[in-house]
Each structure stands twice: as structure tokens, then as C-alpha cells.
């Protein structure tokens, strides 16, 4: 190759003419190619898990186990059958899992193992743009997971109205993002991944089991019920259930939305803060 085009001949630095910094939006856009390649590399694996796992759960618990459960709709938050009750719980739980799995070990790796973030901050990219781009990728992955899930379930007749199902899509993305953002912030401050394993056991799994996905939290003793209702998953499950079973209650829905939105916003802020503390030293 010719030797003249490998690098710039020296330019004189000119302090007066310092260009303006690119906007965060522009910097996020510059990461699309990276995340698209990550997606192409991983979509088949994630598609199987976002499609097969929920289907197995729904068939085993919703259809087969649910066949033994003969409860009246009043006890099932207005859902006509146990299957219709459990499906929004499953999907909200699934969305939580996707959100958390995308921002736990991958974030750890970006900081410590592969150090992709370390490579990225040596370019014009900034920490906020790195966090936002990764969360945008998570949102895209959530969109695919939710769309697949709803399409698979539509034939089971558990989606009361088409508009409810359609509205559930952005709601579920918000649920997943709230978890992803908080998990990003949490992981960014860790020194080792042992804590992550613990978090899965003491927070994620119990939340999945006890936050109203499988049974109404009113079944729990008062203290635990109160505790369950404080979890983000309960808000996510309730809101999704309102939409898929056509039992939307405006005031209550607004509380859920504000809670989840605030959590997503806090998580994002926290993630930027903690990732900055890790990388910019």
C-alpha cells in the first residue's frame, strides 16, 4: 500500500478553533453499528430463550397446572381463567429477565474482562452516550422478545383486546428497561461478579415467584403483600394484566407508569454515575 495515506500529516493545533462536541444523540447513533453486530451474533440464542422458555412455562403452568385451578375471576384480579391471569405475569417476568441479563454480566465484561467500554471512552464517545446506547439496544431486544411472546400466545385466546395487547408492548419495554437501568447501575459499581449471582438468587428469583405473577399478592400475609407491592415487578405485572385482560383502571395504571418511569430514569442516572466513577479515574 502507499505510505502517504496511513495517517494525517501533522496539523497545527489551533485552540481558538476547537470544534463543538458532538451531541449525545449523535454519539448514541454512532454506536448503532456496534450493537447491530452484537445483535446479529446473538439473536438466535436469545430468540430461542425468549420464545421457547415462555411457551413451555405457559403450557406447563398456565394450561396444564391451570386446568386444576378453578377460581372465580374476582379472586384472579378480574382474569377470566388462570391461564389469562398467569400469562401477563409470565411475560412481565420474562421481560425482567431479559433486562437484567443484558445489563449484568455484559456490563461486568465491558468494564473488567473484555473492557469494551475502556476502548470506547478512548474515542469521542462519552459515558452517558455509552449507557444510553446500550439501553436502547436492550429496548430493541425487549421489543423483539415481547412481540414474539404475544404472537405465540395470541392463539391461546388470552389477550382480551387487540389494543390492550398493542399497548402492552411499550409498557413491557418500560418494565424491562426499568430493571435493565437499575441493574446497569448496580453492576457498574461492583468489583466482582459474585454479588451478581447472589442478586439473582435473593432478588430476581423471589421477585418472580412472589410479585403477583403466579397468584394474587392478596394471598400473602399483610406484611409480605405490602412488600410485594413495593417491587417493580408487581407494578409491571399489574399494569400488563390490566391491559391483557381488559381491566384497565386509570388512576392505578398511572401510579404503575410513574413508578416504572421513575425507576428507569433513576437507574439510568445511577448507571451513568457509577460507570463514570469506574472508567474515568
Amino acid at each position: 500500500m502507499s505510505s502517504t495515506d496511513t495517517a494525517n500529516p501533522t496539523r497545527t493545533p489551533s485552540p481558538a478553533a476547537a470544534p463543538t462536541a458532538p451531541s449525545t444523540r449523535e454519539l448514541v447513533a454512532r454506536q448503532v453499528d456496534y450493537w447491530w453486530r452484537v445483535y446479529l451474533r446473538t439473536w438466535h440464542g436469545t430468540l430461542a430463550s425468549s420464545f421457547l422458555m415462555p411457551l413451555l412455562y405457559v403450557v406447563a403452568i398456565g394450561v396444564l397446572l391451570g386446568g386444576y385451578i378453578d377460581s372465580d375471576p374476582d379472586q384472579l384480579a378480574g382474569a377470566p381463567s388462570y391461564l389469562a391471569f398467569v400469562v401477563p405475569g409470565m411475560i412481565a417476568g420474562q421481560v425482567m429477565t431479559v433486562g437484567v441479563s443484558e445489563t449484568s454480566w455484559p456490563v461486568m465484561s465491558g468494564i473488567k474482562w473484555q473492557k469494551v467500554y475502556v476502548g470506547q471512552i478512548a474515542t469521542p464517545l462519552t459515558v452517558p452516550s455509552i449507557v444510553l446506547a446500550q439501553l436502547a439496544f436492550v429496548a430493541f431486544r425487549l421489543l423483539v422478545a415481547v412481540a414474539v411472546f404475544l404472537l405465540v400466545l395470541a392463539p391461546f385466546g388470552v389477550l382480551a383486546t387487540w389494543w390492550g395487547a398493542l399497548l402492552a408492548v411499550p409498557v413491557l419495554i418500560l418494565v424491562g428497561l426499568a430493571f435493565a437501568a437499575v441493574c446497569f447501575g448496580f453492576t457498574a459499581g461492583l468489583d466482582s461478579d459474585t454479588t451478581l449471582t447472589v442478586i439473582y438468587r435473593v432478588a430476581i428469583l423471589p421477585m418472580f415467584l412472589f410479585s403477583g405473577a403466579f397468584f394474587p399478592v392478596s394471598q400473602l400475609p399483610a406484611v409480605l403483600e405490602w412488600l410485594a407491592k413495593a417491587t417493580p415487578l408487581w407494578h409491571g405485572v399489574s399494569l400488563t394484566r390490566m391491559l391483557t385482560t381488559d381491566t384497565l383502571a386509570g388512576g392505578q395504571a398511572l401510579v404503575h407508569l410513574v413508578y416504572l418511569g421513575a425507576l428507569a430514569a433513576f437507574g439510568t442516572w445511577w448507571a451513568v454515575r457509577r460507570l463514570t466513577a469506574k472508567l474515568v479515574v
Binding site: A7, P13, S14, P15, A18, P19, T20, A21, P22, L27, V38, R41, Q114, K115, V116, V118, G119, A122, T123, P124, L125, T126
Partner: peptide, 27 residues
């Protein structure tokens, strides 16, 4: 000619950096 505290992205736009530890995306 720029201050890293205020013009980080602009400086980094014109730098090439080969860090001590590789930060390649191995996947």
C-alpha cells in the same frame, strides 16, 4: 491546544490510542 477537562471528546476525536491492556472486542 485544548484542555482535556473541557474538550475531552474533541481531543479524543484526533487521537489514536493503543492502551496497555488490549480492549478489543474478542467476540
Amino acid at each position: 491546544g485544548m484542555d482535556p477537562a473541557t474538550h475531552g471528546p474533541q481531543i479524543r476525536a484526533r487521537l489514536g490510542v493503543c492502551p496497555q491492556d488490549d480492549t478489543l472486542d474478542v467476540e
